[in-house]
Nucleic acid binder design. Structure first.
Length: 479
RNA sequence: GGUCUCUUAGUAUAACGGUUAGUACAACGGGUUUUCAUCCCGUCAACGCGGGUUCGACUCCCGCAGAGAUCACCA
């Protein structure tokens, strides 16, 4: 059992087309089959240097390891179409011998005239009505065309159901271009056959070309693989399919924004597919187990970044809660504020342990943890305009903080003791938690929010905590 | 224009022809000793339209509308 992902190296993998990698991977793994990566680099004009590596990186990051393809090799190597030219030529010659392909010397401007003529007469443009009369012998340098055999065709698409098409959509498509390289239309059929691919999973945009492919399978006496057409992923607004030209972000960009591969895989797999239960969070193994082609939605699904962020938060908490901070910490290394560089892993892990349940993405660490690594700028307005604190005079605020300092100085520095000390302080000052805790919290962090006070104190340490409160007292008195 | 596909709340989706049309995200409100978040509780919100078939239709059939895809020596 074999499936494949066959991208062309024209750039990064984006949100709109990852599913054509994810689904074949899941199908293959579910049946203990083989997942092939094949690079369809037959269009030299659109080839982008480095794109293959980008694609490979993204697949590896998502955990979609291929069993055959670049780097790993395999029985059907090579896996770059540009290196398989002779194979396509052989199959092309076979079609010529069968009388099902012909060399087409017609210049392209003549072809354009045919097309214009049909358009102006409002009749369908079909090249088979303009077949050259005495085609020359084929050789590289002239395009090779399929000699179509238009007739009613029917087939089954695993997602779209039973399909039919009439002869009007079947034509003499180009098999091999003038540059000697095959078109997608020809190459993918040859390769899938040579590589033993059983499932062809691709976007619905290929649905309307399928009758031509069926004609080709028939002419070559090849079995038709199972066909799976995936509906488009649509942009967040409007009903357009999400493509690069509409600003579809690369999967890699989300990685750099601190999205976990688990969340990306989970979210995308469930965008337009569900197993019929109310389960929302799936790991890769669960997806492999529960995935089913016949439950893929047959309408387009809008990409919702908000839900991806929610899913990512779920995964951050799940991974930390299940495997611990030590296990999760390495994933955060690229996301700390610059000022954290001079701190050791132990300290950063302690910060992570009290902040992780607020993260939506790993890049939130940058903004949410700076006060653990650098002295915060004092903005007294955060205190004086605070809804619980604005009723107090500067003197009262200063007193509150100084009482706190005295208490904290006598406290043994553990979160539990600090909690007890803070409770005693509440009684001693007869202030409300909202008042006392707010002012201490702000004095420590000057951040819009921070973890629970005893935890923040514990991680910051006794000296630093008390020093920061002192600084605020001084600032209030000098104000 | 030809051909093809799709249509349940703002979004993603569930529902043997019989349910108060379920769930999640979002939004809004509330609770957990400050904040932000987590977690918990609650509120709002949907079967595109019109015909059939049927005792009964979100579900089956036909039309319409809307949306999308495709008509390359691109994939």
């Amino acid at each position: 059992m074999k499936t494949r992902f066959a991208p062309s190296p024209t750039g990064y993998i984006h949100i709109g087309n990852v599913r054509s990698a994810i689904y074949p991977y899941l199908i293959a793994k579910q049946q203990s089959g083989t997942f092939i990566l094949r690079i369809e680099d037959t269009d030299q004009a659109r080839y982008v240097e480095g794109a293959t590596e980008l694609i490979e990186d993204t697949l590896k990051w998502l955990g979609l390891d291929w069993d055959e393809g670049p780097i790993v090799g395999g029985p059907s190597a090579p896996y770059f179409q540009s290196e398989r030219k002779q194979i396509y030529h052989q199959w092309g010659k076979k079609l010529i011998e069968l009388g099902r392909a012909y060399a087409d010397p017609t210049p392209s401007d003549t072809i354009q005239e045919y097309r214009d003529k049909c358009n102006s007469e409002k009749i369908p443009y079909l090249y088979r009505n303009f077949r050259p009369e005495n085609p020359p012998e084929w050789h590289e340098g002239i395009p090779l065309r399929f000699k179509s055999d238009p007739k009613a065709r029917q087939w089954h698409d695993e997602v779209m159901g039973d399909m039919t098409a009439g002869p009007e959509v079947q034509d003499d498509i180009i098999l091999i271009k003038a540059d000697g390289l095959p078109t997608y239309n020809f190459a993918h059929i040859v390769d899938d056959a040579e590589m033993g691919v059983d499932y062809v999973c691709r976007g619905v945009e290929y649905l309307s070309s399928t009758p031509n492919y069926l004609a080709l399978y028939e002419a070559l006496s090849l079995p038709v693989p199972k066909l799976i057409s995936l509906p488009h992923i649509l942009g967040p607004t409007g009903g357009k399919k999400l493509g690069k030209r509409d600003g579809a972000k690369s999967v890699d960009a989300y990685r750099k924004d601190g999205i976990l591969p688990e969340a990306m895989l989970n979210y995308l797999a469930c965008l337009g597919w569900n197993d019929g239960t109310e389960k929302e969070i799936y790991n890769k193994a669960e997806l492999i187990q529960d995935f089913s082609v016949n439950r893929i939605q047959n309408s387009g699904a809008r990409f919702d970044e908000t839900k991806l962020l929610w899913n990512n938060g779920q995964w951050i908490r799940k991974l930390v809660d299940e495997n611990g901070i030590d296990d999760f910490y390495p994933r955060t290394l690229d996301f700390w504020p610059i000022s954290a560089d001079s701190y050791d892993d132990t300290y950063k892990k302690r910060v992570l342990a009290i902040i992780y349940d607020r993260l939506k993405t790993l890049s939130d660490l940058k903004d949410m943890t700076t006060y653990f690594f650098e002295k915060p700028d004092i903005h007294l307005s955060m205190i004086t305009s605070n809804k619980f604190l604005k009723k107090y005079s500067e003197e009262e605020l200063s007193d509150m903080l100084q009482t706190a300092i005295q208490k904290l100085e006598q406290t043994e520095w553990t979160a539990d003791n600090l909690q007890t000390a803070l409770n005693e302080l509440l009684e001693q000052t007869s202030k409300k938690p909202a008042e006392l805790f707010s002012i201490i919290r702000i004095a420590l962090s000057y951040a819009p929010f921070s973890p629970a006070l005893p935890l923040t104190l514990e991680v910051l340490g006794k000296n630093l905590s008390i020093a920061r409160i002192h600084n605020t007292v001084t600032a209030i008195e000098n104000a």
